[in-house]
């Protein structure tokens, strides 16, 4: 697909079917054509259990497609080597729902710093400044040394967002984005590009009718 008016096409699903779990299970989302371009914000809505999270995970290359194709900047995901896939995943951030799947054996700061230390091949001290900045942006600096299990779900979700943003992804998928007090959870979306040099994003939202909306 050529570039849209919004910008270059980054992620594209072509006739994609996504299964709920193992590939043998019936597809919960079928024949989806979806192109995510630079600087676009998408909201994926649907009733609970209709496969929104699976669709986002498939678009991020984390869940194998039951049918169809995932394409990143015109290159089929299936044709990529394992090293190329790892490189690709650095450019796609993903925030999981239900507490963001933080690692319980690490502190919040270490959770956020893990992708930085791993990909830069450096110690915790070398990434402390970046981690501190991210935690500050997300308003959880005071919890830097806390363990995820000691935090509320909302704070865990924020820490997961900080972790996903640490590598400055080009596309950001938010599965049930963090809620801010008194605001609908979608309210955080417009702030992200301004806060973090404009990563493009998609959000899964549990309310509203089915389908994606630009």
């Amino acid at each position: 697909m050529s570039n849209s008016a919004s910008g270059e096409t980054l992620v594209e699903l072509r006739a994609a079917s996504v299964a709920g779990g193992p590939l043998a299970s019936p597809a919960t989302v079928e024949a989806v054509d979806w192109a995510i371009c630079a600087r676009e914000v998408w909201v994926v809505g649907g009733l609970p259990g209709t496969g929104k999270s699976q669709l986002l995970m498939a678009a991020a290359g984390l869940l194998p497609l039951a049918a169809g194709q995932l394409v990143w900047r015109g290159r089929a995901f299936a044709d990529m080597t394992s090293n190329e896939r790892i490189e690709l995943r650095r450019r796609i951030g993903f925030v999981f729902s239900d507490g963001g799947r933080l690692f319980d054996h690490l502190t919040v700061a270490q959770n956020v710093g893990l992708p930085l230390t791993y990909h830069r091949n450096c110690g915790w001290d070398a990434v402390a400044e970046d981690v501190s900045r991210l935690l500050d942006v997300l308003g959880i600096s005071a919890l830097a040394d806390a363990r995820p299990r000691q935090m509320t779900r909302n704070h865990r979700q924020r820490a997961a967002l900080a972790r996903a943003l640490a590598l400055r992804p080009e596309v950001l998928f938010l599965d049930n984005p963090p809620r801010r007090a008194g605001c609908p959870r979608i309210a955080l979306a417009p702030q992200l590009p301004r806060l973090l040099d404009g990563p493009r994003q998609s959000l899964s939202h549990p309310q509203g009718g089915g389908g994606g909306h630009r």
């Binding site: 991020a60 984390l62 999981f96 963001g100 690692f103 992708p115 791993y118 990909h119």
Partner: peptide
């Protein structure tokens, strides 16, 4: 079971 393996993959960590 807690999805930490997918979380590692999402961070580009093998």
């Amino acid at each position: 079971a807690l999805g930490e393996v997918e979380a590692l993959e999402a961070l580009g960590v093998d």
